[in-house]
Design a protein around this nucleic acid. Structure first.
Lengths: 339, 339
DNA sequence: ATGAAAGCGCTAACAT
DNA sequence: ATGTTAGCGCTTTCAT
């Protein structure tokens, strides 16, 4: 158990000097610095984080809150964020919030307990409570989704991307377009894009072509598309928009079982561009989100806010949301309508 | 910023008393206890973790180390572990270690910095250094893979399961069985099972039917199977064992592109049983690992060790590895050899 | 049953 | 350029 005092003692210098060397603050004579560095390397000494945290009044941990049931995309996004944050010297802790107010309340309690340095919201927050806590606690926050508050955001234009996806389908001649909407905020946004696209193109909106699914998983998609087909009756859609790729993959599988050929009899388009999407039969047309960039930016943005807060003590300023570009990846699952 | 001193002051008691109430140590007069609890609830006071950590010389955080490039199964396992550990009041922090000694060195440094209370190893550790650090630091560790040291383990019998998978293929009449081996320790173990099964059944081992891939991803499997086919030349295998499901899924896709029908012309079997595996065309035959149980047990085992270490200060005792059962899930991608 | 005081390991004024 | 000193918020002897 070697600590900074030990190191200092062995070198005949003060702990302060060692601290300064380690943190690069102020100037320390080169000769001394080298000796400190040498011994540190030799002994494998590493500063105790808890002690630093206490002295600095920073916890070096930032929270990532997201739904208990979440898609692969969000999971991967987490990894990216985590890695980046780690490189800035921060920990991350996850807060899984279950749907509904109750879940958010629980999450809020944990958030307070952790004395976090910052928070990353991966999904929409329903209750204003969390937001107001962050404001009063001056806790830096960033969100991966546009929100009604002043929380800085890094995201693609979900509704816009969905609009583009559906427009692609319409451009292919489809007029009866079904949609599988995954539960959660992204689903809502993408549903909006779907509606907008129909309206813009004068395609009537039919309730029976909209199917909400509880779990945006492959299994959910497989089940969902069957239900959709049932409820749409004679007016079977010729195209399908799934609000994420898992749903689309499941849907394609069910369609195959049903003997409905994709894209010949039904075009399918997804959202996210997971790895699997390029390997389905047929390969999935989808919207690609810049996963890596989103994660890196989210982490960076939060980091900057923390620095600002630490340095200037300023209240959080309004930062314009940064909207990252998405790309429509056209593969094999969409084709012109025939019939 | 309310702290324990504040609370104590407002109540006209000593910080010690508040601490005792909060931690349930020793007895505090009921009347006082209630007042403390009341104020705590009212003010929403939560003890500062860093300060506790320092005083208690515990960090309440446990590390999970696993490879930078890792499969979906390991990712999901992490989630399970994390959730369980959280319920015990512990944080988790990830240490991504890149292949090779260098990666492990870096990881070791972070491990030390964190003053962890425990460590979970999700993959095989190459350097003895990490192990010896854990021993001298008396850091409780558990591993998700059998290892040459005394680290308690929770895992399935990888080699045995692979043996079973390949035996299934042999039982179906296959004699030329290719294998796609993912990089990393699991791959090695499963390769061993493959070899054992061949030997046991008197099937000659052919080097040209073994293909190592750098990344055990879908893309890796898609590429890998092509290479395997090239290198096997005229002796094209009639069956394929992929050391994880991602590889198998990619392989199935490539085979489809190549016009090689699965399972008619080639049987394919995977390992892990991911969600996607039940939705491929054809559905994938694979080995199912008890994901949930593995995670829960790993967490529990570590927790017990920590308690032991805290309470008895005992050195870590040798705990026999617990081998969880796997199941061969037969679906559609394997069939009797025809030709 | 309760309180006073010391200390966990580090950093940041404040000297010098 | 470097050292001395005083905390950060909590728990824990050791008194009483």
């Amino acid at each position: 158990m070697t600590n900074i005092v030990e190191i200092a003692k062995q070198l005949g210098v003060s702990p302060t000097t060692v601290s300064r060397v380690l943190n690069g603050k102020r100037y320390v004579a080169k000769e001394k610095r080298d000796r400190v560095l040498g011994l540190v390397r030799e002994t494998g000494y590493v500063p105790n984080k808890a002690a630093r945290a206490m002295a600095l009044r920073q916890s070096f941990t930032i929270g990532i809150v997201f739904p208990t049931v979440t898609g692969l995309f969000q999971r991967l996004l987490c990894s990216v964020i985590e890695e980046k944050l780690h490189s800035y010297g921060y920990h991350t802790v996850f807060f899984f919030v279950s749907r509904g107010e109750a879940g958010e309340k629980t999450a809020l309690a944990s958030v307070q307990a952790e004395k976090l340095d910052g928070l990353i919201l991966l999904h929409e927050i329903r209750s204003a409570e969390l937001n107001s806590y962050c404001e009063t606690a001056r806790l830096p926050v960033v969100s991966a989704q546009a929100n009604p508050w002043n929380i800085p955001t890094v995201a693609i234009d979900d509704a816009g991307a969905a609009f583009e996806a559906v427009s692609h389908l319409i451009g292919l001649g489809h007029r009866r377009i079904g949609i599988l909407v995954g539960a959660g905020s992204f689903g809502d946004l993408r549903l909006k894009g779907y509606k907008d696209a129909l309206k813009k193109n004068g395609v009537p909106l039919r309730e029976e072509l909209i199917r909400h699914v509880d779990y945006a998983t492959i299994a959910g998609g497989a089940r969902g598309v069957k239900r959709l087909l049932e409820q749409s009756g004679a007016a079977r859609p010729t195209a399908l928009f799934a609000t994420n790729d898992e749903l689309a993959v499941g849907a394609i599988r069910s369609l195959f079982d049903l003997g409905i050929r994709v894209p010949l009899e039904m075009s399918v388009i997804g959202f996210d561009d997971l790895e699997i999407s390029a390997y389905t039969v047929p390969r999935l047309t989808t919207i690609r989100q810049p996963l890596k960039e989103m994660g890196v930016r989210l982490a960076l943005l939060l980091y900057c806010q923390i620095q600002d807060a630490v340095i200037t003590g300023l209240s959080l300023q309004k930062i314009p949301p940064s909207v990252l570009p998405h790309i429509l990846i056209i593969r094999e699952s969409t084709a012109p309508r025939v019939s």
